[in-house]
Design a binder for these strands. Structure first.
Lengths: 295, 295
DNA sequence: GACCTTTATGCTCATGTTGAGCATAATCTA
DNA sequence: TAGATTATGCTCAACATGAGCATAAAGGTC
């Protein structure tokens, strides 16, 4: 059984991060590595284009997963080489699903997301209490607090995978819960593919901080608020508007188009475009994400 | 042909970073993923222990590589899932080689390393001049300057892989040079394994900045200068002593043992130990690496 | 014993970065 | 005309970072 190539294709539309899926959102585009593929990445591109018709832009390898082998089962296991790809949605394309449909607790810009974390905190506290030893309970509580930013520790948007794995261990997601048991809201995926999705989210959130990949998700021209909303959508956290602009301005990665955004509500905003030429011309850091206090 | 598991095992001894190799330094420990392996990591651990007798501590996945398929060759290609592992050397163990024996230009703490970069800069300028078009020459020069920190751009210690790939393209390393052509100093490895080694170095250099992994490479107790020399050995760059201590102190990750280092030259230094308990108890950043001007 | 070399350690200072928020400008709508 | 709404400019305090001065505590040399 050859390794499989699997893609998490991300776009942001209407300030919502989206993932390209198959089979009603249960699967990610994927296919086996074949002898004819010139490289892993070309193999991936061929499969995704074949299955979804969508060409890939910026692509980077994420992680290689392997199923646990089944006792007495076939002598084969599924090895998945996963990739993160960034792109823009195109009108009328099907299969795009909201990121936060799979991980509702990851959206900390919305009050619902924050409320859900409060609920999760209570459920995980129960779970911690069910640890066999007192030391085990303490260790679990500490882990919960750290992973979900409780006790004033502060939410870390990059801990996507750690949070999912914690919920998995606590049997609060359908992938691990006994049949019929109550589970958290959020779509699940076939096999372990939600784990791949979590890995992609975590990587993207980390990456926008130190590389200007956010522009891969932007249209040709955009306002600063649009850019901010896109970053907020990805990071799942609100930002401080003025500081965000200051940071973006001093990076010197974008330039005014000279035009102004049509049909806005307040004062019209200037339009900007990404200066493609700076890629490779300078050493570029992403943006430090000037966070705002979650009101 | 099942995927292969391949390990870059790193330790620092006598302020020199070392890699565990086989076959006189030509190979890294590796072996095929087998049905009996419970996970990728357990498979890796088994192979490394079997081949080298060394048990693995901190392990993390690096990258999955695939050879280019050979035209008309076997229908099979080598897929390598690579790992970085950190450990300490043990007396009398064989197979340890210096990192910088493979990448002499990466050691920017030593004058020889800096001189070598000057030589490389000249060779790569020639290479850039051999590009077909004027625009191509300019693009090559820009890439060289950025990758090797020329023209006042500053050396970026994390660009290990980019530098190696540039030298590969310019046919300055034995892996890509035509037979008999002059090549740069530095040991090479079988297949593309030096590329795996470069990836590991790059990852480790990046990681010590934001996670306290450096302590995986330290003995139980150490002086602050010893810690600094270890970081410098990994980063390949000199640090500012006082600022280094300030940073380490404010991280609060280590504590005094109460003892003092034996047989030192100047004023005796206090010994410290890593506070293992903080792992998991706090959100921990590595160290920002207070660089010193290369004299 | 005085003095030099060497490493350890404490402290200051200028500069840059970051979080927070006030104030004003330019639109549209009621 | 008075909000409402978004854009944009600017200030301030707190903290982080790069650089380097000054002193302390050892051993070795004359």
């Amino acid at each position: 059984m050859p390794p499989e190539l699997i893609a998490v294709l991300i776009a942001v539309s209407d300030d919502r991060p989206m993932v390209l899926t198959l089979e009603g959102g249960r699967l990610l585009p994927s296919g086996p590595l074949e002898a004819g593929h010139r490289s892993l990445q070309t193999g991936l591109r061929l499969w995704v284009e074949h299955q979804t018709g969508h060409a890939l832009g910026h692509v980077e390898q994420l992680y290689t997963f392997a199923d646990a082998p089944v006792d007495g089962g076939p002598d084969e296991r599924r090895v998945m080489i996963s990739y993160l790809a960034l792109t823009r949605t195109r009108r009328g394309e099907r299969g795009w699903r909201g990121w936060y449909d799979y991980f509702p607790w990851e959206d900390q810009t919305a009050p619902e997301g924050r409320a859900l974390v409060q609920r999760i905190a209570r459920l995980l506290d129960d779970w911690a209490g069910r640890a066999p030893s007192a030391a085990g309970q303490e260790a679990r509580r500490q882990r919960v607090a750290l992973t979900f930013g409780l006790d004033g520790l502060g939410w870390d948007d990059e801990l996507v995978l750690q949070r999912y794995e914690l919920l998995w261990e606590a049997a609060l997601v359908p992938e691990s819960a006994p049949p019929g048991a109550p589970v958290l809201p959020g779509l699940s995926m076939a096999c372990d593919e939600r784990r791949v999705l979590a890995t992609a989210m975590a990587r993207l959130r980390a990456k926008i901080r130190y590389r200007p990949v956010i522009y891969e998700l932007m249209p040709d021209s955009f306002t600063l608020l649009h850019l901010q909303r896109t970053v907020e959508a990805v990071a799942g956290q609100p930002m401080h508007k003025q500081n965000f602009r200051r940071l973006v301005a001093q990076q010197d990665l974008i330039e005014e188009t000279g035009e102004v955004a049509p049909d806005t509500r307040g004062r019209p905003a200037r339009l900007f475009r990404f200066r493609r030429e700076v890629i490779g011309a300078r050493r570029i850091a992403g943006s430090k994400l000037p966070l705002a206090r979650p009101i």
